[in-house]
């Protein structure tokens, strides 16, 4: 070190530790003073260049025009630039073609996760796990069909199923028999009286002659163990038959409305969501 600093006769406070650690009261070193004044210069420069001094109506703007929003936009642009080659490819492709392309569908699964979280997960649950009253998307039971085009259709135009309320058309006994039959169907058996009613009351129109559902109508399949309105109990089935689904003029009716997304999302976004949903585990 140079010879002129911390000289032995520099004044001190009289505090000494470990024999030679003295607390001096002399001037701080020059480099420190220089750094200190440079700090002041930096602060002035900063105040001039960047938004800094808070005033009543917001803060000073700074001559660089820097804002947090611009910074964010720059970051978003950076991200978009990385995504652009994929997004450009997606635009010209059908959803089916995206699904068949391993690299692109992997990209979609990653990039559509946020979109799904924002737009779908509120009802259908994270990962398509479903929620009470809302269908599970990760299983292979589809009301309107589980192929990629149909899923895309569903997201684009939404779905509003309709099942009339049968409360004025069935007696207490009939309701009981019907519910027993439908429950039996899911266990692989039948209920004779209920089966007769199933046909005479016109249930087959939407749910099919074999009760496996009709995708055109969005009629549920009764022969599997997956229930559109869980739990699959006699009581719950009776409620659905009595009050219907989206039945007009009935306040107690079950609600099943998938909103229309074509005005809220771009075509590519819908395409990506369709691929994402298809790959959740139940796509056909």
């Amino acid at each position: 070190m140079s010879d002129n600093k911390n000289s032995t006769d520099a004044p001190d406070t009289g505090h000494v530790w470990d024999d030679n650690l003295r607390e001096l009261t002399n001037q701080p070193p020059r480099w420190w003073i220089i750094t200190f004044y440079l700090g002041a210069v930096f602060i002035i420069g900063y105040l001039v260049l960047y938004p800094s001094i808070p005033l009543v109506n917001g803060s000073t703007k700074g001559v660089l025009g820097w804002t947090q929003m611009k910074r964010l936009q720059a970051s978003v642009e950076e991200l978009d630039a990385i995504r652009k080659p994929f997004e450009d490819k997606l635009k010209g492709m059908s959803a089916q073609a995206v699904l068949d392309d391993r690299e692109l569908s992997n990209y979609v699964v990653r990039s559509a996760k946020v979109l799904f979280g924002d737009r779908c997960a509120a009802c259908h649950g994270t990962g398509g796990a479903g929620n009470p009253g809302y269908p599970i998307l990760a299983d292979d039971d589809w009301l309107y069909g589980g192929n990629i085009d149909t899923i895309q259709q569903t997201i684009t135009n939404g779905r509003t199923g309709l099942m009339p309320a049968f409360k004025d058309n069935v007696s207490e006994q009939e309701l009981d028999d019907l519910a027993k039959h439908i429950l039996a169907l899911s266990q692989g058996s039948e209920h004779a009286a209920g089966k007769e009613l199933y046909n005479s009351k016109g249930c087959f129109g939407c749910h099919g002659m074999e009760a496996k559902g009709v995708e055109m109508m969005g009629g549920a399949n009764f022969t599997d163990t997956i229930w559109r309105f869980a739990p699959g109990t006699e009581e719950s089935i009776k409620y659905t038959i009595t009050n219907g689904v989206n039945a007009p003029g009935n306040d107690a009716t079950r609600i099943a409305i998938m909103p229309v997304f074509k005005e809220q999302l771009t075509e590519t976004e819908i395409k990506k969501l369709a691929v994402y949903v298809h790959k959740l585990g139940g796509g056909q």
């Binding site: 649950g125 796990a129 599970i136 990760a138 039971d141 997956i226």
Partner: peptide, 11 residues
């Protein structure tokens, strides 16, 4: 983890 498992239509 979400969902942990899914019941399929074939049981």
């Amino acid at each position: 983890r979400q969902p942990l498992f899914v019941m399929r239509s074939d049981g």
